[in-house]
Design a protein around this nucleic acid. Structure first.
Length: 691
DNA sequence: CGCTGGGTGCACTTATCAGG
DNA sequence: CCTGATAAGTGCACCCAGCG
């Protein structure tokens, strides 16, 4: 797996541990805008002296940013007065158990309509909202709204604009919703249970309470196990024969590695230390006052008398050392397996090539034989006609090796991500050396389908991009994306060969050319891997426009669920590849391709259809995304600071696609399209999204 | 019986006013 | 301007009824 991913997830996990995004008061509830009215209305019932009403204060200037309030010490809960009972969480238990209560009455359709209207009209002014409904008081209204908001959050639907004026969060107050609050929990903020780091752990932010509990239990079990490994007898004494290691601190050179590579944790910094085995050869059991009752013989022939504590430290150190070695072995094993798979894959590829080459060679040989035969015959005839001189001096054709080496050497093709280089700032397609070889324009329709496709699968997805190439202006236009059925294998995708052919004919059926391909990096950055670069080079070669000397073919990578994204919008990068010479060796380098968006006015029915189709196409895909799962427990991640409430994958999808809709589209239309996508997911996948 | 949704008590916080 | 009183708002946990 990609290291950057692991590293970043770990980073986030750490961040989350360090600062709970919900722990601090995100904002001090300072709604400056329209408080006056609000407050006055509230106060009306208080009889005021018939003072001349104060002239309405001018709209308050935005208050100077509040000084960070001195950390309020949490108020002491009232002293327990005796027989009061507390919940496990420290709350006082309710006393209303068994008391009579108002009859619950479901919200009927009319009330529901009024409810929605009220939110649109009055936002969080609950009094006015309740008045608008007419048949409910403010308390009922807020109760209903609380749950309504949570559902909107789950579905990724936006709050009404008027509500957002007083806060983006999906709570009554506008603060970010806490997915672990019991109010939210019962509405099923299910944490993505499939997302694990390469070492099998989960980032802290994605742990459920149960997960965390389990992890803690496991940790404690491990501690117990470690302690249990101390080789002591029933009296707590080290046994004779106990194997120890001794650390020779004086020989330890603080190696530069530790400094040069800060990623090497302190846990491993004993790698440079020297260890030597030793054995307890005698224990002075008789004299309880002897401070150094243990006689130890080390493998270098030295003896030492030691205290119990020293031995314990050493044994613990030894266990720890073994652990790190185990880990190292595990990592090596993983690496070995990975390269094995890689080699296997490459061998397969090479095999394929070889077979193709053999076939081609065979064909060539046959043709050659034919030609030879004809030539020999002609020569024989000529020789018969003319003396042998010509036959002997006639130029001979070297039989070239006809191994169609369309694939590169095995040196490339790793799964490591390669940083992309940038073209020179000269205009794309200008022909200036170093400039981007063509102009690239992408339609929102293509972006929508690509992004949607990537959001639907936890595995990598793959597809083609159809459009046109204008050699005169050197502009490449991508009009539509054609989602393929991917055969995902780990981090690498290949397209089902049959689907590939189908897909090509689909593109052609719409009078387009294949001008690019796309794939996704579900949870890591959209930077091409060696395999991606390889693929791209092969494609480029295949689609080369020889007369113009340009390879009008571009690769897109979509990164939908990278935890590091600053907001909900996926990152999408375009790249092409070049083979460069470097110190006599070739190096294949990805270049970032800049692109513009065509200014469509609306989303055509055809695009809506494509989006529906890709949803349906993936309904029984193995790595199908669970849309109601949490993508991450926060919405924004700016300057490494998590912000906002929980974000489900559905919310992520909606928001990301929304950002790709043609500019200037009405909110109503946006919602219509997004609701359409969500509903398609709901019906075709058979999941309840509450739409 | 478990799930869903309406309703409410508790323990606060926040905004505002009146009186000093 | 400060301060205490007070109304209203808030988050949350929990209760309860209806439903499949």
């Amino acid at each position: 797996m990609a290291d950057p991913d692991a590293a970043s997830a770990a980073l986030i996990a750490k961040l989350l541990q360090e600062e709970n995004p919900y722990g601090e008061d995100v904002y001090g509830y300072q709604d400056d805008s329209d408080d006056e009215d609000y407050g006055r209305a509230k106060r009306k019932k208080k009889k005021k002296a018939p003072k001349p009403p104060k002239e309405p204060k001018p709209p308050k200037e935005p208050k100077p940013p509040k000084e960070p309030k001195a950390p309020k010490e949490p108020k002491r809960p009232r002293e327990p007065t005796g027989d009061e009972e507390f919940t496990e969480t420290g709350r006082r238990k309710r006393k209303d158990a068994g008391t009579a209560r108002a009859k619950a009455r479901p919200w009927d359709d009319q009330e529901e309509v009024k409810f929605r209207e009220a939110l649109v009209l009055y936002g969080r002014d609950w009094k006015k909202c309740a008045e608008h409904v007419g048949t409910r008081d403010a308390r009922s209204f807020t109760s209903h709204a609380q749950k309504h908001f949570i559902k909107l959050c789950l579905q990724g639907k936006p709050l009404p604009a008027k509500v957002r004026e007083t806060g983006d969060g999906y709570t009554l107050s506008g603060k970010p919703l806490d997915p672990n609050s019991s109010a939210a929990k019962q509405y099923g903020f299910k944490v993505d249970t499939s997302f694990t780091l390469p070492d099998g752990t989960r980032p802290a932010g994605l742990m459920t309470a149960e997960d965390a509990e389990e992890a803690e239990k496991a940790r404690q079990a491990k501690v117990a196990e470690t302690v249990g490994k101390l080789p002591v007898d029933s009296d707590g004494r080290f046994k004779v024969g106990t194997v120890l290691r001794k650390k020779f601190d004086e020989e330890v050179e603080r190696d530069e590695n530790a400094d040069a590579n800060p990623n090497v944790g302190t846990e491993d910094d004993d790698s440079a230390e020297k260890w030597i085995e030793g054995k307890v050869v005698d224990v002075d059991k008789d004299d309880a006052d002897n401070p150094l009752p243990y006689s130890v013989e080390f493998d270098d022939g030295t003896f030492e008398d030691l205290a119990h504590e020293e031995l314990e430290v050493w044994v613990q150190a030894r266990i720890k050392h073994q652990k790190t070695e185990e880990r190292r072995a595990w990592e090596e094993e993983m690496e070995r397996k990975r390269s094995e798979r890689e080699a296997e894959r490459e061998a397969k590829l090479a095999d394929k090539e070889q077979k193709a080459a053999e076939k081609a060679a065979e064909k060539e040989a046959k043709q050659l034989a034919k030609v030879r035969e004809a030539r020999d015959r002609a020569a024989a005839e000529a020789a018969a006609a003319e003396p042998t001189e010509y036959a002997r001096s006639r130029p001979r054709r070297e039989t070239a090796a006809v191994g169609a080496t369309t694939f590169r050497d095995a040196g490339g093709g790793t799964l490591e991500l390669h940083p992309m280089r940038k073209f020179s700032p000269s205009p794309p397609g200008s022909g200036v050396p170093g400039a981007q070889p063509f102009k690239l324009t992408v339609s929102p329709a293509a972006m929508l389908v690509m992004d949607l496709h990537a959001h639907l699968c936890t595995n990598e997805v793959i597809g083609y991009l159809g459009g046109s190439w204008d050699p005169d202006t050197k502009s490449l236009t991508i009009e539509r994306a054609f989602p393929g059925r991917g055969v995902a294998s780990g981090m690498d995708v290949e397209m089902d060969p049959i689907a590939e052919v189908e897909l090509k004919s689909q593109v052609e059926a719409q009078n387009m050319k294949v001008v690019g391909w796309y794939h996704s990096h579900p949870v890591f950055e959209p930077t091409p891997s060696g395999v991606d670069i390889n693929n791209q080079l092969n494609y480029q070669r295949l689609f080369r426009d020889e007369p113009v000397g340009v390879e009008p073919f571009v690769g897109f990578i979509v990164g939908p669920y990278d935890m590091r994204l600053p907001n909900q919008v996926s990152s999408v990068t375009a790249f092409c590849a070049q083979r460069l010479m470097k110190a006599g060796a070739t190096e294949d380098v990805p270049f970032e391709v800049s692109y513009g968006l065509s200014d469509d006015k609306d989303v055509e029915p055809l695009t809506v259809g494509s989006m529906a189709a890709v949803v349906v196409q993936n309904k029984s895909t193995e790595g199908r995304v669970n849309p109601t799962e949490l993508w991450r427990p926060f919405t924004t991640f700016e300057n490494f600071k998590p912000g906002g409430g929980p974000c489900t994958k559905l919310a992520k999808l909606r928001a990301s696609l929304c950002a790709r809709l043609p500019a200037g589209m009405s909110e109503l239309r946006e919602e219509e399209i997004m609701d359409g996508v969500a509903k398609t997911i709901q019906t075709s996948w058979g999941v309840d999204l509450g739409y």
